[in-house]
Structures are given as C-alpha cells and as structure tokens.
Amino acid sequence: MRYSASFGGPATPAPAPRQGVRPALFYGMFATLLCANALTATAFVFSSDIAKLWNRQDDQVVAAYEDRIAQLRVEVDRLHSRSYAQAGDINLQLQELSQQQEVLLEQHQLVKVLVDKAGQLGIDSAALPTATGAPDIAPLAMNSGNAEIDATATAISQMMGETQFAMTSIAETATQRTRNIVTELTGLGIRVDLPSEDADGVGGPLLAAVDGADASSPMIDDANAVMAALVRYKAARDTIDTAPVHMPISGSFRQSSGFGNRTDPFTGRRAFHSGLDFAATSGTIVLSAGAGVVSFVGQQSGYGNVVEVTHANGLITRYAHLSGFLSEVGQRVNTGSPIAKVGSTGRSTGPHLHFEVRRDDMAINPKTFIEAGKRLTALLG
C-alpha cells in the first residue's frame, strides 16, 4: 500500500485512480453518433418528393425541391471544408461530388423548362407517372468509408435518376399521344404533317476532332429529344383544330336523324339522308366544326339557308336550314366560332341543324368525325 506524507502528520493512504472511458472507445462512439446524425439529416432533407414536382401540384413544391438542391450544395461544400478533405482519395471523391452537384442543377433547370412546355400542351399530373416506379440510375461509385460522403453521393444519384425519369415520362407521353392522334385522323383521311425527327439542318467543314470540345452533352441531347417529341405533339394537336371533328352545336339539342337511308318525312318512301340532324330551338347558335374559311353563305335548293366552311385536306362542312347568318364568305373561323343560327328553312319539318361533311362533293358520314373528335377530346383531357 502506498502512503503520502504531509508535513507535521502521519502518512495517509493515497486515493486509488478512477477507471475512465478509454479514448479509443470514446472517439469511436462519437464518430458513430455523428455519422448516424448525418445519415438521418441527409435522408430527411433529400427524401423523395420529385413526383409532386412533376405533377405540378404547387409552385411551393418546385421551390422546395430547388431548396433541396441548394442544401445539397451546402452539404458538399461543408464536406470539402472538413479536415479529411485533404486525405488521399477522399479529396478526389469530394471533387466528383461537386461536379455531380453541378450536373444535377443543370439537369433540373432543363427539366423545369420541359415540364412547363409539357404543361402548356396539357401533359400534366394526369399523364405523368410518379417517380416511385422510376428505374435507378447507376449510383456514384463512392465507398469512402465516410458515411456522410456516401450518403450525399446516394442522394445526388437518386435525384438525378428522378429528373431523368421525368424527362423520359414527358417524351413517352407526348410520343404516344401523337401516335393516337395520327391514327384517328388518318382513319378519317386527314393527313397529319409532323416535323421530321431528323429535320434539323446541320453542316460545316470536316475538321479533325479536338479533345474536350464536344458540342453537346448526353443530357442536352436527351432534353433536345424530349423537346422534339413535344414539338411533334403540338403539330398533331394543331391538326385536330383544323379537322371538322367537333360538335357543330351546343346547349339543348338532340340528334333527330342519322346518316344513310331512312324514311323520307315528306314522301314516306326510302331515301338517302346525307348528314346528321340536330333538333334545337330556332335561333340556337351553330358552331364551326373545325378551323377553316367560310366558302359559301346563301341559299341552296332543299337546304334553305346554308353556310359552308372549307377545311384542310379537301374537306367541306355544310350547315343547313338556318334562320340567320353570323359569318360571311372569306371569313376565317376557328373551331367553335359562331357562324349561323338554327332554323327551319328549305325542306324541313321543324327547327333543326342539318350537318354534313363532304369531300370531292361526296357526303361522308359525319358521325365518324364526331366520334373521333370525342375520343381525341378524351385523349387530350
């Protein structure tokens, strides 16, 4: 037993040293707690809500997503400032993180433009799949042994995959809708003029390649491909406006007679009826079934007062038995433009609109056009 002596007194036993926490264990516990907090914070900040962004639910969601990107940049900068940023391969990994962060920001800006353009064309939350089914892109090759670096790399990879998925969804939706429109209109004998997928003019002298001077990145190429799909879709939509596939009347009406052979209301014998009849009160507004030019306003035998509109692809729509005119020859009209009023002039038993679709002076069943118009309207939402 050890004793300590004091001046003027007997020796007393020295207190035994306390058993403390070993330094290695202390720092290990501290590091574990720090990494766990970093992982939790990263998961909280960068949790997946990209689907809400592409669903265009609220401008605040867009701002929140951009805040996530900004916070991610702060996280990358913070990692750079730590002391281990100078330790071997970790410094290179942090530089790669910074580069990927810049790519993510650029990708996000491109997708914002594309989402806005798609929204203008009616491709919105009803058309875009959510990101929950998005395929994962290859994650950043980070196995630094530092949980904060690896978690941030995973967050960047996830967000890049989601934005890429959003671009793919827009392109696929636009392309499928374009195909459906072309199918419907082609079935009516209406040609749809679409920009060629390789219509961009390019050229220049043939020079040797220069390292690091690529004209565009794969990301830019992807964005251009999406924009090209949207341009083709817009051209297809514009063709719908010119096609006479829309209802020529609105409000209270009923179809009183169809296209084809029927019992003639005056003779009681079988006769051919060249259009659709919509019974409505006299004075009900008659609408142009598609964009075109008014080519006739006047009277025709059996039809009474008539308006005709010439459309693209050699189609003419005829509106008969009218009580009044709201258009004149040479006037350009759009789909739904008021052009006349329902009446009972000519060979008619009561107020109704007689509607015809004609090509090469031959009557075509208008119901085929009206039904196609309904399907296209449903397609466009």
Rank of each mutant, 00 (worst) to 15 (best):
R2D: 06
S4G: 14
S4Y: 13
S6P: 04
P10S: 01
A11Y: 07
A11H: 00
R18C: 10
G20L: 13
F26Y: 14
F26V: 06
L33I: 13
L33T: 10
L33F: 10
C35K: 08
A38S: 12
A38T: 05
L39N: 12
T40S: 11
A41M: 09
T42N: 11
S48I: 10
S48N: 15
D49E: 14
K52A: 12
D59W: 06
Q60R: 13
A64E: 14
Y65L: 02
R68D: 13
E75L: 11
V76F: 02
S83I: 15
Q86L: 14
I90M: 05
N91M: 11
Q93G: 14
L94S: 03
Q95M: 00
Q99T: 00
E102C: 01
L104I: 01
L105K: 13
H108T: 13
H108N: 15
L110V: 01
V115Q: 00
D116K: 00
K117I: 01
I123F: 07
A127S: 15
I137H: 10
P139M: 07
P139D: 05
A141F: 11
S144L: 11
G145N: 10
N146T: 13
T152A: 12
T152V: 15
S157I: 07
Q158R: 15
Q158M: 15
G161A: 05
Q164M: 01
A166S: 09
T168V: 11
S169T: 04
I170K: 06
A174R: 08
T175L: 03
Q176G: 14
R177W: 05
V182N: 08
V182S: 04
L185N: 03
S196E: 15
V202K: 14
G212I: 04
D214P: 03
A215M: 10
I220N: 11
D222P: 03
A223P: 00
N224C: 08
N224L: 05
V226Y: 07
V226S: 01
K234S: 11
K234D: 13
R237G: 06
P244F: 01
M247H: 02
P248Q: 09
P248L: 06
I249G: 05
S250F: 05
G251T: 01
R254S: 12
S256Q: 08
S256K: 04
S257I: 08
G258T: 09
G258D: 02
F266M: 10
T267V: 00
G268A: 02
G268T: 01
A271H: 07
H273S: 00
L276Y: 08
D277F: 11
F278I: 08
A280F: 01
A291H: 09
G292F: 12
V293P: 10
S295L: 00
F296N: 07
V297R: 14
Q299W: 13
Q299H: 13
Q300W: 06
V307A: 02
E308G: 08
E308I: 07
V309M: 06
A312S: 07
I316R: 14
Y319H: 05
H321N: 03
G324H: 10
F325I: 06
L326A: 15
V333Q: 08
T335L: 08
S337C: 02
H352M: 04
F355Y: 15
E356R: 04
R359D: 03
D360H: 01
N365K: 12
P366E: 07
P366I: 08
E371D: 15
G373C: 02
K374L: 11
R375T: 09
A378T: 12
L379H: 03
